[in-house]
Amino acid sequence: MIQVQHLTKSYGSVLALNDVSFHIRQGEFFGLLGPNGAGKTTTISIMSTIVAPDKGSVTIAGHDLVKEPTLCKRNIGVVPQEIALYNELSAYDNLLFWGSLYGVPSAELKKRIDTTLDLFGLFDRRNDKVKTYSGGMKRRINIASALLHQPKVLFMDEPTVGIDPQSRNLIFEVVEKLHKQGMTIVYTTHYMEEAERFCDRIAIIDKGQIIAQGSLEELKSSSKIKECISVTFRELQQESSRKLATLLEGDFNITDGTLSYNTSNVRSDLSKIILKCSEAGTEVAHIDIKKVNLETIFLNLTGKQLRD
């Protein structure tokens, strides 16, 4: 459905994307993960035709993005990170406006608006001005406005940022439903649990380059680390923390009084860690051993938390 080949983009002297290539199959739920400034938004902006690449090509549903931008646009729906709605208009009028831009016939559009409003649980409030909506309700309308022309591909840029659990669950339900109906979805998020729950395949991008891609299982199996030893201390003085850091070897970090140690051999590393903690003069309160997850893979690959 989407072919991205050797995409390069610079802003002045800053290289935002460096030879990025990936493909997304029809009906696939594709996650694009990366820390802030990694190049996710630039990639989405190029794929949604509003930023021109310096080099490389993108085809969407068989149409070249540069040569046939209008055809590409008709096949995509974009849910931007920011809530882009007209606050002084009602939800219905907002949807009527955004839907009309894609040439959906009026009668058909009105039917789709009613169905979509119902899907997002906002039919009863359709005539209220958007400015009276909560953040979560606005997010739902923001997503609804990208669906009215029934796109083949849906780009969702952090669609659940800053919303209440009820709205988040409703959005999850809709997203899963769309996926089941065969829509191709490209999803960026800071929430690992969302990526793990929905994505068929994930690409991890950092410093403008794709550093890993595949299904969650493929990413886990290719990772050097298998488990994470998490040590919580009763009290961790700054001096003890510094001493512990000098004593330990391997892939670890100490934040907020907790030591996280990535390992491929828990049995041998666990005893070493306890010994070093004792040498550093720290008192261990709790030890937890976690299976490797997307968060640890991400941390291992980028050296950063996803929310950094």
């Binding site: 949604s48 974009v78 955004w98």
Partner: peptide
């Protein structure tokens, strides 16, 4: 500033 211009640019207009 409110992002609606960007959203308009996503459309086939």
């Amino acid at each position: 500033q409110e992002g609606t211009l960007k959203k308009l640019l996503y459309s086939p207009l």
